[in-house]
């Protein structure tokens, strides 16, 4: 039964909050139970940001992820150091290898390395690095469909940013390709 508990983490401006919101939004569109809980503590003032996302078939109890994340998506090194330990044994770790030189230190977790920033720059917009990671996550877990994420993105962007839909979709595809290999 679907019960994903996802941590999205990075520094402010990398779009980790949006990444989490899109997963939640898409889950809601698909009729799943979802929750999104941001960090808003003093650490945010220091520039790091993270959110906890739940997508489940069952009503969601606690929206808090303590040490039971099924997936962690880390966009920078401090996030890897902080959240690697919070993944369950057998869980998945998505690492932005453009900014993180280190490898995963746990052997009971499967790590996937996605050069998100390089791909984003290649696509012509460094700001879509989060969407590359999101595409990899979706391909890997199938938590929600790319279709539903696109619907969610359309809502979030509105008319004024409609022209950015294509590059975001392309970024997700490129992320997915990394997983497909």
């Amino acid at each position: 039964m679907l019960n994903e508990r996802v941590i999205c983490a990075g520094f402010g401006g990398q779009g980790v909050m949006l990444m989490g919101q899109l997963i939640s939004y898409a889950g809601m569109i698909e009729g799943k139970e979802v929750s999104w809980l941001p960090s808003y503590g003093p650490e945010m003032r220091g520039g790091t940001a993270n959110c906890s996302v739940m997508v489940s078939e069952r009503p969601i109890g606690s929206p808090v992820i303590t040490d039971d994340a099924t997936v962690a998506i880390v966009m920078n090194l401090p996030s890897l150091d902080k959240f690697e330990r919070d993944i369950i044994s057998g869980g998945k770790l998505l690492i932005n290898s453009s900014l993180i030189d280190k490898k995963a230190s746990r052997s009971d977790v499967t790590a996937y390395y996605v050069p998100a920033n390089e791909i984003a720059v290649d696509l012509g917009n460094p700001r879509v690095a989060n969407m590359v990671m999101l595409g990899a996550f979706l391909e890997l877990t199938k938590t929600v469909s790319v279709d539903a994420v696109m619907k969610a993105l359309k809502k979030v962007f509105g008319d004024s940013k409609a022209h950015l839909m294509a590059i975001n979709e392309e970024a997700m595809n490129r992320g997915a390709e990394i997983i497909k290999g």
Binding site: V34, S35, L37, P38, P63
Partner: peptide
């Protein structure tokens, strides 16, 4: 609590 205020749910 702060969680109720900050979190998103459908």
């Amino acid at each position: 609590d702060g969680m109720i205020g900050q979190m998103m749910e459908p």
